[in-house]
Simulated assay, not measured.
Amino acid sequence: MKHISILLPDLETGGAQRIMLLLSREFSRRGLQVEIVVLKTGGPLYNTIPEGVNLTLLHANGQGLRFALSSALRLAGWMRQTRTDALLSSLRGTNLLAILTRSLLKAHLRLVIREAASVSKTATGLRLQAMRWLYPCADCTIAINPVMKEELTTCLGIPAAQTVFIPNPVDINWLRKKARAAITLPWPKDKEKKIVVSVGRLIPEKDFPTLLRAFALQPASLKARLIIVGEGPEQKNIELLIKELGLDESVHLAGFDDNPWRWMASAQLFVLSSQAEGFPNALMEALVLGLPAIVTR
């Protein structure tokens, strides 16, 4: 039986983590031995590891440079003893760590990395130089859209033969089943009041302030309500803006939910207000559920 390992920095609620969990479930369903290797302990997705998938926690600790050194040492220890056939890494810092550790150890495992953000727009300085130096050493680099695939060659010098475009997957049947789960809305049911939903981490890149300011401009006759599903470091600022705009009665912050699709199923409209997206998973999932969508450019 082939053994594949998936490397993640943590089990927080990011899109990359969700995609890797989805892939692990499908790999396992197809008969592969699957292991998820996580550098940092904890995170809301800890309890969502698919059945049949092994979880290895490396317990890296500290912050900044200390965390990087701890991660490198623990990953090196894992690489020395693993019998995996291939390692799939996602997220930029984890990719660089995996490439460097494998190169120093001369470990005989196939390494595939996934780049989920535009290199030309998000990589600068020392991080960009490190990517130019290390990314070509991976056996294969996955880009999640065609433009990003081209950037892997033009910006990082990776031979085109070592790159591949693979869009993020959606398990349609599983998603629709999850969306049927029961949910209690924060307001009494009212057919005249439509529900708008947005899903994402509460971080600057998702630009929820723009969504809230736009929502505050709606005519009173629309009587719409807004639900934002997600958590993150911008929560306090978003809560203050909701009060400032007088939206306390019409906006609900649902927080983290490992089944955000049931909120989508209860809504009549999905909105994505991100400043940039490599591949908008939440938008794709909303469309799968038949939800009309409004997206910023």
Rank of each mutant, 00 (worst) to 15 (best):
H3W: 10
S5N: 05
L7I: 06
L11Q: 05
G14L: 12
G15L: 13
L22S: 14
L22N: 14
L23M: 13
V37D: 09
V37S: 11
T41D: 14
Y46G: 00
P50M: 06
N54V: 01
T56K: 15
H59W: 08
Q63F: 09
L69C: 12
L69H: 05
A72K: 09
L73D: 00
R74Y: 00
G77D: 06
M79T: 00
R80S: 07
Q81R: 15
D85K: 06
D85M: 10
L96G: 10
A98T: 07
T101D: 00
K106W: 12
K106L: 13
R114I: 12
R114T: 14
A117Y: 12
S118Y: 09
V119W: 12
T122M: 12
R127F: 08
Q129V: 00
M131L: 14
T141Y: 10
N145Y: 06
V147D: 13
L152R: 11
I158Q: 09
P169I: 05
L175R: 01
L175T: 01
K177E: 15
A179R: 01
A181V: 00
I183T: 01
L185T: 04
W187H: 02
D190K: 01
E192G: 06
I195Q: 07
L212T: 03
A214Y: 04
Q218E: 15
P219G: 11
A220K: 11
A224M: 14
I228A: 03
I228R: 00
K236R: 13
D257W: 04
D257L: 05
N259E: 07
P260K: 02
W263E: 01
A265W: 02
A267T: 02
F270H: 03
L272V: 01
A276E: 09
F279S: 15
N281K: 05
A286S: 06
G290S: 02
A293Q: 04
T296F: 14
